[in-house]
Design a protein around this nucleic acid. Sequence first.
DNA 1: GGTTTACCTTCCCCTAAGGGGAAAGGTTAC
DNA 2: GTAACCTTTCCCCTTAGGGGAAGGTAAACC
Lengths: 132, 132
Amino acid sequence: MASKTIGQVVELTGLSAKAIRYYESSGIVSEIPRANNGYRFYSNENVDELLLLKGAREAGFSIDQCRQLMAVFHDQNRHSSDVKAMTLAQITQIKQRIEKLQSIVLKLEALTEQCQGNDQPQCSIIDGLLKS
Amino acid sequence: MASKTIGQVVELTGLSAKAIRYYESSGIVSEIPRANNGYRFYSNENVDELLLLKGAREAGFSIDQCRQLMAVFHDQNRHSSDVKAMTLAQITQIKQRIEKLQSIVLKLEALTEQCQGNDQPQCSIIDGLLKS
DNA sequence: GGTTTACCTTCCCCTAAGGGGAAAGGTTAC
DNA sequence: GTAACCTTTCCCCTTAGGGGAAGGTAAACC
């Protein structure tokens, strides 16, 4: 079975049909050849593109970053150093997001510690948010 | 100066005029009274709502969570325990997001360690993403 | 008073990454 | 033949506003 319908690719990749069509219409993956009835038929190479894309999305790469990644993927003269650089940059970005979230957690934890948490309306969390 | 124009509220709160109007049209803050010319005029209470909202947004609360928070804020019979419960739930959610991001970082770091990062096309990051 | 500048209003389109569902047509099974 | 399932395109929806247009208003300056 060299070429597969979109339903079969859904089974194979775990991606939704909506997502798969979206990736094509956005130009992130190659244009998929059609049969006479208009149905898309996916080659193994097409499926590989989708698998790579899925892996990258699950690794937190944005669609725009994936676009670049796919371009590198299709570059016959690519250097693994380029892929590594993109990945290291991605790691840095995610770590920054983590730090921001951690500072929020610290702030919220400080506020909850001040709050009595009883049946009175006075609440130092609200007071704290008002002043922040 | 008991009531302020939106421009003055922008100065006062650091929020954008777009955001302030959005909060009103979304029903998150109270409806703002208008002058004859249609201009909004903000009372101190209106400004307080916006300040609380801003603090909550900066603390990572979503607009929908802010909506609930504002409802509690306006509830004369509120219990600080309710606010505390919402805040603790928010802390839990953020911690989950942090954990997810951390697992992504671990995965990406493992991949970069395997990648040679040279001028060859073979790249274990791509291979790893394809299989994941 | 007239003009310029700054401010306010609503309105519409745009973002990211698809999801939901309609309407229409194709394919398969009974 | 027809029921069930598959595929197609199309349009609206989501978050939390941003950008900018078109038009009315207010304050400042001459």
